[in-house]
Design a protein around this nucleic acid. Structure first.
Length: 730
DNA sequence: GTCCATACTTAGCATCCCAGTG
DNA sequence: CACTGGGATGCTAAGTATGGAC
């Protein structure tokens, strides 16, 4: 069962190819809410009858059996045969369940034991949530410092120098259990975007062939457009329309009357000017570059850190987003709109009362200063495109993010313990008398098996038309009673998060198939597939099945368990370091495929692949030469039988070995890169894979963790690197 | 249940930067 | 030593989830 997610279909290879075509397809659906209502009314009585019919068709096929024959298609295709590293692709053969699902004393390896949770950290969270009143103190020695801000600050500053050597192991300390996120918080506030600098007078803008001097407000917005001139989207109707509308808002009455047609605007001189500027920046002297670097470092030291509970912690995004033109992902109805400049009076500052409050720039005021220690953000503002709130928060290496991340994986491990029960349950629910329960059960099956996202409803016309599981519409799936020799095949084709296409053909169990047919009956293509379901209903149900369980936990769980399983299967002891790392990447890749983490093939892909191939060819030739030389040396040595020729044999043998190794290295590199062409590994590595699995794997095979995690990643996963031992089991 | 606000995680792409190469 | 490919980092959009008002 552990590997079933791997199997999910033939999604990848054709997926991106169709991206463009797919975009053209119109999603004309509208009025979903109404549709949902309508559906309900329509099917109200029918459900019960249906149930009778359906309840006969079931067979008692075991979930487990179902998944025995699975293997990864996408990787199959891509594995290179010529090089010596065609270790089998991550074909998933079924393993005895036991290997995975009973976990022998998993927790024992954790060094620290937070008093309150011997069992798991998941429970720790529970405690936190339930006993809101019982304030647990963090480490006692911290307490006094927290209260006096002066001291906290000085302490913090001392830490600046100290901390690099002795890293704070927050994971060895207790956590808050009272729902507060911190006791003391001090920071310097955000860094605002540089003010607009009007263009030099020689850079002309013209309208309808005539020069025209814009006042700075309008000119600034024009420069935003000019800077994007090379992008395809400046040619899109919606983009242009939105842009012009917002641009005109910044114009004087006079400008407004004149400038009515975007097609008559000439942004080219502006665009050229900015290109020249960026060239100039690139060509700058070393000194100049160093100056800039130093200034950046100064800003980072000043604004890039805060003091939270006695520790100096890195802030993730201390710079306020500069104004510009909004470009959403995919077919976004708001593309081209003006993203306003954020001013101090838009800013809410959050810090502790007893801290030194950040100062707004001279002559300005913050919108508000509050002291809310139930949240983790330092600064917030409301963005003008969607009206959503943006935050400045801490870096992933910080305690506050790290604890949460750790807890996320503990929840996923919790799911591991009861996933069998939950699977049995939803399979049972496929037969339910109630439509809403059947829908819930089928949706959950998709979320589990295919690692789909939950699929919250979205406001129509505000964002690109994308969906997740609960928001799938009839038009997003096709049912094939029989397809390519397989029975009950479901074809998924929809745009998910970031308008990334999800395309997959999956055989499902008969009952699921029949249910889908039922759900689709008498519906229009733009009706919701699961009209009786939404994410909050689903999550409420999940919450009852397991504490802390939500739809996304399945993604985390399935991703991590897949990595662990794949690593076990793909890593072979005899292989060298490089090959092991390739195996790791392949395991990682299996997860990325499961989670549909795609990327556009790098622009330079073909070229760089060619270069690499050329290198490989050259190395092959070199190897041939080296071997020939070795041979002749050997022959020579046989005849001469003296020390000198023996030595020469040795040297040449070494040369051959060295060359062989270099060749292998190149070939591995080529394989890895080819397989990675349109797959992004970073997202799963950073967000879905319990780092302790990777750390344990590194320890087991004595692979330096640096080969797997770069510096930033090591900082983020410091807790895992510190605590996971070789025998860690997810 | 629905709607809305809020907070926080997850996501891909653009740009930066630096190590390795010729 | 200059160049450059590609990984690291920055950026910010787009998700998930929850809780409270009605």
């Amino acid at each position: 069962m552990s590997g079933d997610q791997i199997d999910c279909g033939s999604r990848f290879n054709d997926s991106l190819k169709h991206k463009e075509k797919y975009k053209e397809k119109e999603h004309k659906h509208k009025d979903h809410k109404k549709d949902k209502e309508r559906e309900k009314a329509k099917h109200g009585n029918r459900d019960k009858e249906k149930e009778k019919m359906k309840s006969k068709d079931g067979s008692a096929d075991k979930y487990k059996d179902k998944h025995k024959e699975k293997k990864t298609k996408p990787l199959d295709v891509k594995v290179k045969k010529e090089n010596g590293f065609a270790s089998p692709p991550p074909a998933v053969k079924s393993e005895p369940e036991d290997t995975f699902f009973h976990s022998p004393k998993l927790e024992k390896s954790l060094k620290r034991e937070r008093d309150d949770d011997n069992d798991s950290d998941f429970k720790a969270k529970k405690v936190k949530l339930e006993n809101d009143k019982k304030v647990k103190k963090r480490k006692p020695e911290e307490e006094p410092k927290k209260t006096k801000n002066k001291r906290a600050v000085t302490d913090g500053k001392k830490k600046v120098k100290k901390e690099p050597e002795e890293k704070w192991k927050w994971w060895e300390e207790e956590r808050y259990t009272d729902g507060s996120k911190w006791k003391f918080l001090e920071h310097k506030g955000p860094v605002f975007a540089a003010p607009y600098e009007p263009l030099p007078s020689h850079v002309k803008f013209s309208y309808d062939g005539k020069h025209m001097k814009l006042r700075p407000e309008a000119e600034e917005v024009a420069t935003f457009f000019a800077k994007m001139l090379d992008h395809e989207y400046t040619t899109k109707d919606i983009f242009r329309k939105n842009f012009l509308k917002d641009w005109r808002k910044e114009m004087s009455a006079e400008e407004k009357t004149k400038l009515t047609d975007l097609n008559k605007c000439d942004f080219v001189p502006m665009s050229e000017y900015f290109k020249a500027q960026s060239e100039a920046r690139k060509a700058m002297s070393k000194d100049g570059k160093l100056k800039i670097k130093e200034e950046n470092e100064r800003l980072l030291q000043l604004y890039g850190f805060c003091i939270m509970d006695n520790h100096r912690e890195r802030i993730a995004n201390f710079r306020i987003e500069p104004p510009g033109l909004f470009r959403g992902r995919g077919d976004h109805p708001k593309m081209g709109m003006l993203k306003r400049r954020i001013r101090p009076k838009d800013i809410i500052v959050n810090c502790s009362k007893d801290s030194k409050h950040p100062e707004p720039p001279p002559g300005t005021k913050w919108k508000e200063v509050r002291h809310d220690n139930k949240v983790t953000w330092l600064v917030s503002w409301t963005e003008n495109i969607q009206g959503s709130i943006k935050y400045i928060m801490l870096n992933p290496s910080s305690r506050i993010k790290g604890e949460k991340d750790w807890q996320k994986y503990e929840t996923a491990r919790q799911l591991k313990k009861c996933v069998d029960r939950i699977r049995t349950q939803y399979r049972e629910d496929w037969k339910s008398k109630e439509m809403r329960i059947r829908q819930r059960a089928v949706a959950l099956y998709f979320i589990d098996k295919l690692a789909l996202r939950a699929g919250n409803e979205k406001e129509e016309g505000e964002t690109a038309d994308t969906v997740g599981c609960c928001s799938l519409r009839v038009e997003h799936i096709k049912l094939y009673p029989e397809n390519d020799g397989q029975e009950f095949v479901v074809e998924f084709d929809f745009l998910g998060k970031d308008s990334i296409r999800y395309y997959n053909k999956v055989p499902v169990e008969k009952r699921v198939f029949k249910n889908l047919q039922l759900f689709m009956e008498n519906k229009e293509t733009d009706d919701d597939l699961f009209d009786r379901l939404n994410t909050s209903v689903l999550n409420k149900h999940l919450q009852e099945l397991m504490d802390g369980l939500t739809a996304k936990v399945f993604r985390t769980y399935n991703a991590s368990i897949t990595l662990q399983q794949q690593l076990k299967q793909l890593t072979s002891a005899e292989e060298n370091l490089l090959a092991k790392i390739l195996s790791y990447n392949r395991a990682n890749r299996a997860v990325a495929i499961l989670c549909n983490h795609q990327r556009a093939p790098p622009k330079t892909f073909e070229k760089s692949m060619q270069n690499l191939q050329a290198k490989i060819d050259a190395k092959r030739d070199q190897l041939v030469d080296a071997k020939r030389e070795l041979k002749s040396s050997k022959a020579d040595a046989k005849v001469r039988r003296d020390e000198k020729s023996k030595k020469s044999v040795e040297t040449r043998k070494k040369a051959v070995e060295r060359t062989e190794e270099q060749l292998m290295k190149l070939e591995v590199q080529a394989t890895d890169r080819e397989e990675n062409k349109q797959i992004a590994l970073g997202t799963s590595k950073l967000n879905y894979l319990d780092p302790r699995i990777s750390v344990a794997w590194c320890k087991k095979w004595t692979i330096p963790v640096e080969k797997i995690y770069n510096k930033t990643q090591r900082e983020k996963f410091a807790w895992a690197i510190d605590m996971a031992e070789e025998d860690f089991e997810f």
